[in-house]
Amino acid sequence: MNKAKLSLGPVLFNWKPETLRDFYFRMADEADLDTVHVGEVVCSKRTPFLEPFIPEIIERLTAAGKDVVLSSLALIMTDRELNAARELAGAADILVEANDISVAALMAGRPFVAGPLLNIYNEGTLATLEAMGAMRVCLPAELSADAIASLTAAAKVEIEVQAFGRLPLAISARCYAARARNLTKDGCQYVCADDPDGMAVETLDEVPFLAVNGTQTMSYHHMDLLGDVTNLAARGVGRFRLWPQTFDMAGVARLFRAVLDRKMAAPEAEAALARLCPGAEFANGYIHGRPGHLFVEPEFIE
């Protein structure tokens, strides 16, 4: 029996607040998850719409026995954003995930989660964050299984790895959802809400490549580590993160749990995942030290 835990990452997209609330209620009631992240990571312009719903979301999740983590913004530039980060860091009784180093600095001395959008590539940085109070570290998407294993061997705290969903690859001050529609970020009309799974970006040869989520650029392919999680767990990874998409996330969580518990073989789970995510293309290249968009067949894994 594997002890690896499952986390649901924060919803990175601009979903309608009611949709978001219903989604979290469903996760609370139906999904086999240890931890659920809540909070706006990508764009501070979205926060005011989301905020009124957060207390009831947290309440419902907590009542359902899920641990709740509040995730911070990834790129903090303005005073308003910094003040929001300070407020977040001051929140009592709730664990905070730092996705900008300033939030980790604000949390220093108290337990916090070091998020996947911090640059934690090696043991030295890991040790510094542990010393600051990080009680869990979610690693950047780029790392290979070997790099991950090197870090789990050195870690005093739990190591988390991103395992499902479109990968957050870059963050910018510029909004590409707005730019694609000839708008600027200031007058964006919240067009990012038109694409609840991100706006597909293709090459000029119409090959799917990336996805745009406002100021964030993501992978077009969905990360899928179903074939890799048991190996990674054996190499010391204590937790896997599933990024919310509009698919049946309770179903996705069920598949990961089943594979980790060795109740389902990876190929069978892969087939089930493809059915749960119609139209999705999958990738796991980073874990195998390859370009991130590639999918390395599980049978080739040692």
Partner: peptide, 19 residues
């Protein structure tokens, strides 16, 4: 155009990144 040091687009396409 991305926040520097916080961009993995290059490795997504090629396996090699600035970081």
């Amino acid at each position: 155009v991305m926040a520097e040091g916080r961009c993995a687009l290059s490795s997504y396409a090629t396996g090699q990144s600035p970081n």
